[in-house]
């Protein structure tokens, strides 16, 4: 069975109003997820009510654009927004509880902010020979 998933594209200025509508209709905030693409950044706001899945998509040109926070509407959004800020380095303004980059303790700051081309993995360790019967180790 393929479940129906609605996808609506919105712009930053109407975000908070749209999300407030969802709050009034008692939708549950399922997740906020960021996708970094070579030419743009997408943020997906997913909502659910009685297994009805609705998705708002915010498209940003680059990571300098200010994104309004929806944590004043959905309190739990602050965790997703801090995560997005800490991993992608996006500029989200007005989070109710702004950790300012200390929510997610990663070794590299803004670990997901870059979008490098795929590289061939390098084998660092020397392999160990595991040969049975006749074979001779190197």
């Amino acid at each position: 069975m393929i479940e129906e998933q609605k996808l609506i594209e919105i712009i930053p200025s109407e975000l908070v109003a749209k999300v407030r509508d969802m709050f009034v209709e008692q939708y549950r905030l399922v997740q906020i997820g960021c996708t970094k693409l070579p030419d743009r950044i997408e943020i997906n706001y997913s909502f659910d009510k009685n297994y009805q899945f609705i998705n708002y998509r915010l498209i940003l040109a680059n990571d300098k654009v200010e994104v309004p926070s929806v944590s004043s509407v959905y309190w739990n959004a602050l965790f997703y927004e801090n995560e997005i800020h800490d991993l992608f380095g996006l500029n989200i303004v007005g989070i109710v509880l702004d950790f300012k980059g200390t929510f997610y303790e990663t070794k590299e700051k803004y670990a997901f902010a870059t979008c490098p081309p795929p590289i061939e993995p390098v084998i660092k360790t020397t392999p160990v020979v595991n040969i049975k019967e006749k074979g001779k180790p190197q």
Binding site: T102, Y104, E105, T106, A111, F112, P118, P121
Partner: peptide, 15 residues
Amino acid sequence: RIGWVHRGLEKLVEK
């Protein structure tokens, strides 16, 4: 606060 066992597995899709 979290992040002590962040392994970046989502990023692995690129490889």
